[in-house]
Measured scan of single mutants.
Amino acid sequence: MPEGSASLQLAVGDRVVYPNQGVCRVSAIDVKEVAGQKLTFVTMRREEDGAVVMVPEGKVLAIGVRKVASAE
Rank of each mutant, 00 (worst) to 15 (best):
S70H: 11
G64A: 08
R46Y: 03
E3V: 12
K59D: 15
A71E: 12
S7N: 11
N20T: 10
V65N: 03
C24F: 15
E57C: 08
E72A: 10
Y18R: 02
G36E: 03
E3N: 12
E3M: 10
V31K: 05
G13V: 01
R66I: 15
V60L: 15
G58H: 15
V26D: 00
A11V: 11
L8E: 07
V68N: 05
G13Y: 00
Q37R: 11
E3K: 08
Q21C: 08
V26M: 00
D49N: 06
V16L: 09
P2E: 12
P56V: 13
P56Q: 11
V12P: 04
P2H: 13
V55Q: 04
L10M: 04
L39N: 04
V34C: 01
R46V: 04
G22F: 03
A51N: 06
G13T: 01
R66T: 14
F41E: 03
A11Q: 13
V60N: 04
E48D: 09
G64V: 09
Y18V: 15
S27W: 13
V17Y: 15
E33C: 05
R15A: 05
M54H: 08
P2G: 11
V55L: 14
N20S: 11
R46A: 05
M1R: 13
K59N: 13
L10N: 01
G22W: 04
V12M: 02
G4H: 11
R66Q: 14
K67L: 15
K59I: 14
L61E: 13
V52W: 06
V34W: 07
V53R: 03
A28S: 14
A11N: 10
R25V: 15
A62C: 07
K38C: 02
G36P: 00
V53D: 02
A35R: 09
A11F: 08
E57D: 06
K67H: 08
G64K: 06
V53E: 03
A71G: 10
D49W: 03
A69V: 12
L8T: 09
K32N: 05
R25H: 04
D49E: 02
S5K: 12
V17P: 02
R45Y: 14
G13R: 01
G64L: 11
G64H: 08
C24T: 01
A62D: 13
V23P: 05
G64Y: 07
V34G: 03
G50C: 02
E33F: 11
V31R: 05
V26T: 00
M1C: 02
E3I: 11
T43L: 06
V42Q: 00
G22L: 04
Y18N: 02
A35Q: 10
E3L: 11
E47G: 01
G36K: 02
C24S: 02
A35H: 13
V42R: 00
R46W: 03
A28G: 08
E57I: 15
